[in-house]
Design a protein around this nucleic acid. Structure first.
Length: 934
RNA sequence: GGGCCCGUAGCUCAGCUGGUUAGAGCGCACGGCUGAUAACCGUGAGGUCGAUGGUUCGAGUCCAUCCGGGCCCA
């Protein structure tokens, strides 16, 4: 007679080397090395060589600094989609890209150089340094993305500084220029008069500055009827802190809906907002004034004219605008469209002229009238004095307020209109549909995910002003046009464009800054106006958004493995204003169609309280740290588990929860692997020979595959996560696998019962490892390599293994689902009853119990049909007695728990009444005796 | 200030076109098991559905306002 220890040796206990502890941060690099070795990206294209194309076009992150949680999330999302599509048989090339040009890099390089070195650095040298800087971070970020498990053509990514990419900008510029959508205009920008350069918003530092604060009256030359009876002079009163902008005044803007009144003071009438009369009176020190009873809306005064305050014989006009505030000043805003953002916008809306009497050095030209030759800062006190002499100064004081300064020289900057290039939203060549119209139309044809995104995009494109595409910088792609040195005429035609395209393709945009136009333009290119042949290349460069926007041409069209339009663009919600729009506008502008068939947007990454991450709040979580601590698969699982339609929270707690869920999934795989150690597909049991519970389990697996596939197809990735996770926990761990243990461990190793179970476990392993592969890219590969060769379907990597198919007969599936719904409902009641019995000390483990189940006849019949042994196995008790009866609603059954009669079998630990049937093994139950006998 | 969007248990999510006492898993508390063991099983306690009004026989679900948060503008 064998003792206890020997019986254990006769059991088929789980065996595996697959580690329970993931130790991802250490183990993940092994998979990276493996993918590198087999060239998994190329292989993913080869296996689907004839498949339908699926192009997810990567939006290029800026090549500056390390990745953050937002970039990590975005890239992981793209990767899981590409991997899913690959496994579904699509040919899904993925070419990562980087945005390499632009002000932030140039700014950083200039800061690194310092002002002294900067002075002796040529533009070409600066560009070379910027290139080095960008390339360094392309390398850094590429490594970080790869570490996250992202698969793609990192050998040959697209970079906006590549020659062919740069040439694509010219192709699009040419197409849009030829279609009459590009024009030269003027727009005010921040300008440093000392450095003689334009400044980007990021190059502005705000600090307090003392300025003049003056109220000035402009006398009406036409009167509103309300004031027509007055004999005195009537003037509008404006307030400004920049006296030097008065020579460029062309209008006064009022709030259309506000009330304006006349104030009689010192023998004249001054008009201002009623709400600000007191404030103006205080500033002017009026002791004796009279507010006239007539009130008039700002809108009613619109169209009146007044004497321009500086230039004799010139008139300005009253208009209305939304930007007029009634909290400071007089409610009448001096408007010089060349010297302010609001002024510019309102001026354009009203078709006002834009005089610009200030030159590069901040000096008035003849347009400055009496102040010609003065520099604007010198002019301020002179103008104030002059106004006083003219009698138009109502009040003057000094104020201290926040004012923009140049980051280089720390001097105050001015707003100054300069020549810029624009893309017109509403004008195009004859016969060409205007851009806005084409873009709105294209938006309607694109699939937007989530659905509300179309509203946002439509609103933005519907409202947006013309696109200013020129920048006064060095690090970028030049605006590809020329001007005539002799007469200043713009020269841009297909001949010059084509020559520039060829130049950029051959030598890159750097050549533009080194070579003279004559060196690359064909002979005979001459000014269409004066015939001059001395041409000058444009100084300005293109807005980087234009550059990244043209990736549809520079990348999708240019690379043989890709094509335009892409199936999908996928970025954060800020890209409605950014890349989605610049891609759309440049594509519609050139081709009259969108560059994408679908656009998926996700929210921003915020902390556990829903707040944005910032250094000052101290709530920043770095993906690099998470990878080092927990592993990339944890980030991937987290990304998949969130509902990306809204903002996505991340915190230590959330990541801890994610790690726990990960462990649960991992352990489920470990259980499957460990119980398949002695199984090969040749041992599979045919459907008709399988136990019923196992067939039911196959139904649940088929349901899971369908649910998960649908979730992927509908872009509902958190449903992928939830379905798989719930399946592991609910269907498998707490029911099927728990029930299966007795059969797996104690039944004959190669008997039908055990093989039937293993057939299901193998199907589960094979299907589930594929379902999770797009998300848990490292872990799934690790599992794949632990699977016996015979189960890997000839695929070296799970990424190349295709998508699972679990076929079940639908009629039988329905019968099983219905029957097991009853079984599971009863099992719930039984476990609850067992818990009470346990609390009373009646039983310990559930096998010590015998249960009396009382249920309606229909349920009893269903339970009975499963078979007595199957039923007690599923309920995990020693014996079940069924009684017809009415349970207390809403419970499906009432359950009574008794102590089981049997004796514990020392091998399978069940309480059995058939112990000792075999004289050779008098302590064993008959099943175990049979198994041990062999 | 404007446009778009979000706010259901400690966490992540379900709650379809408004209709019984708002669900799941995790976490937590308590218990079981010790042949998935730095695992596994069970029971239980947790929610004024951001707030306030309104429409309705009836609202987490519709409307308004407010509060909090995010992106993009100004």
């Amino acid at each position: 007679m064998a003792d206890k220890a020997d019986y254990k040796a006769t059991m088929n206990l789980p065996v595996t080397d697959f580690p329970m502890r993931a130790n991802l941060s250490v183990r993940e690099p092994d998979q990276l090395e493996f993918w590198e070795r087999i060239g998994v990206y190329q292989r993913s294209l080869e296996v689907n060589a004839g498949g339908e194309l699926f192009i997810l076009h990567d939006g290029p992150p800026y090549a500056n600094g390390h990745i953050h949680m937002g970039t990590a999330f975005n890239k992981v999302f793209k990767d899981l989609i590409v991997k899913y599509k690959t496994m579904r048989g699509y040919l899904a090339p993925y070419v990562p890209g980087w945005d390499c040009h632009g002000q932030p890099i140039e700014h950083q390089v200039e800061k690194n150089l310092g002002p002294e070195k900067m002075k002796t650095t040529t533009q070409a040298e600066l560009r070379a340094l910027c290139r080095d800087y960008a390339m360094k971070f392309v390398g850094v970020q590429a490594d970080e993305f790869k570490r996250l498990g992202v698969r793609g053509d990192f050998e040959d990514p697209y970079l906006t500084l590549n020659h062919a990419y740069e040439a694509g900008n010219v192709r699009i510029f040419k197409a849009m220029f030829d279609r009459g959508m590009i024009y030269k205009g003027a727009k005010p920008i921040h300008w440093c008069v000392r450095c003689k350069t334009a400044l980007a918003e990021a190059e502005i530092e705000y600090s307090d500055e003392t300025s003049d604060s003056i109220y000035v009256k402009f006398e009406f030359t036409s009167r509103h009827e309300l004031f027509s009876h007055l004999s005195e002079a009537v003037s509008i009163v404006i307030w400004t802190t920049t006296p030097w902008t008065l020579p460029a005044n062309v209008a006064v803007t009022l709030a259309g809906a506000a009330d304006y009144v006349g104030v009689r003071v010192g023998g004249e009438v001054l008009v201002m907002a009623e709400a600000l009369v007191t404030a103006v009176a205080a500033a002017a020190g009026w002791s004796d004034y009279e507010v006239l009873p007539q009130r008039v809306k700002g809108a009613e005064l619109a169209g009146l004219h007044y004497r321009q305050p500086i230039h004799a014989g010139v008139e300005g006009v009253i208009i209305t605008g939304d930007h007029v505030e009634l909290t400071t000043g007089s409610g009448a805003v001096h408007t010089a469209p060349g010297h302010g953002e609001d002024d510019y916008l309102v001026g354009r809306a009203f078709g006002l002229p834009m005089p610009m009497p200030v030159d590069d050095e901040g000096r008035f030209d003849v347009g400055g009238g009496p102040f010609a030759g003065l520099q604007v800062w010198e002019a301020n006190p002179v103008i104030v004095e002059w106004l006083r002499e003219q009698g138009s100064l109502v009040a003057a004081a000094k104020i201290s307020h926040s004012y923009p300064h140049c980051w280089r020289c720390k001097r105050p900057v001015i707003f100054r209109a300069t020549e810029q290039w624009f893309v017109s939203m509403d004008h195009a060549a004859p016969g060409v549909r205007p851009l806005r119209e084409g873009a709105m139309d294209a938006i309607g044809r694109v699939e937007w995910i989530p659905g509300w995104a179309i509203n946002r995009m439509s609103a933005m494109v519907g409202d947006r002003p013309d696109w200013c595409i020129s920048r006064q910088r060095a690090w970028g792609v030049p605006i590809p046009v020329f001007s005539c040195v002799k007469c200043g005429e713009t020269i841009a035609n297909d001949t010059t464009f084509d020559a520039v395209i060829e130049l950029f393709e051959r030598e890159g945009a750097d050549a533009w800054f080194i070579k003279a136009p004559a060196e690359y333009l064909p002979e005979g290119v001459a000014c269409p106006r004066c015939g001059g042949t001395d041409l000058r290349a444009e100084d300005d460069i293109l807005d980087v958004w234009f550059e990244s926007g043209v990736s549809h041409t520079s990348v999708l069209d240019a690379r043989p493995e890709l094509r335009r339009p892409a199936e999908l663009y996928l970025e954060g919600s800020d890209q409605h204003r950014g890349w989605f729009q610049s891609g759309l506008l440049t594509s519609v502008g050139a081709y009259d169609e969108a560059p994408f068939k679908a656009v998926l947007t996700h929210g921003f990454i915020v902390d556990g309280d829903g707040r944005k991450m910032s250094k000052s709040l101290g709530n920043v979580i770095s993906p690099i740290d998470v990878v080092a601590k927990s592993g990339a698969d944890i980030i991937r699982l987290w990304a998949c588990s969130a509902d990306y339609g809204q903002d996505i929270s991340v915190s230590d707690e959330i990541l801890d929860r994610t790690s726990e869920a990960y462990r649960r999934i991992r352990n489920t795989f470990r259980f499957l692997l460990s119980n398949l150690h002695d199984y090969t597909p040749a041992d599979a049991v045919a459907w008709d020979d399988m136990l019923e519970l196992d067939r039911y389990a196959m139904v649940t697996l088929a349901d899971l595959v369908e649910k998960v596939s649908k979730a992927y197809d509908e872009w509902r990735f958190h449903m992928v996560y939830r379905s798989i996770y719930d399946y592991c926990v609910t269907d498998l761990s707490s029911f099927y696998l728990d029930v299966l243990k007795d059969r797996l461990y104690a039944d004959a190793a190669t008997g039908r019962e055990r093989r039937s179970a293993q057939t299901v476990l193998a199907a589960m392993l094979s299907a589930m490892v594929r379902l999770v592969a797009p998300v848990l890219t490292f872990t799934s590969e690790e599992i794949w390599r632990f699977m016996p060769e015979s189960m890997r379907d000839g695929a070296e990597s799970v990424q190349l293994a295709g998508w699972p198919v679990v076929a079940v007969d639908e009629a039988e599936a329905t019968r099983l689902r219905d029957a097991y719904a009853v079984v599971l409902a009863v099992k719930d009641e039984v476990t609850r009853a067992l818990e009470f019995a346990r609390a009373e000390g009646l039983i310990g483990k559930s096998q010590e119990a015998k249960v009396l189940v009382s249920a309606p006849a229909s349920a009893v019949s269903i339970l009975r049909d499963r078979g007595a042994r199957a039923l007690s196995d599923m309920l995990m008790v020693s014996e079940v007695e069924l009684v017809e009866g009415q349970p207390v609603s809403p419970a499906p059954a009432s359950v009574e728990v008794l102590v089981a009669d049997g004796v514990k079998c020392p091998r399978c630990w069940n309480l059995r009444s058939d112990i000792g049937g075999d004289p050779a093994y008098p302590d064993l139950c008959s099943r175990c005796a049979t198994v041990v006998t062999g």
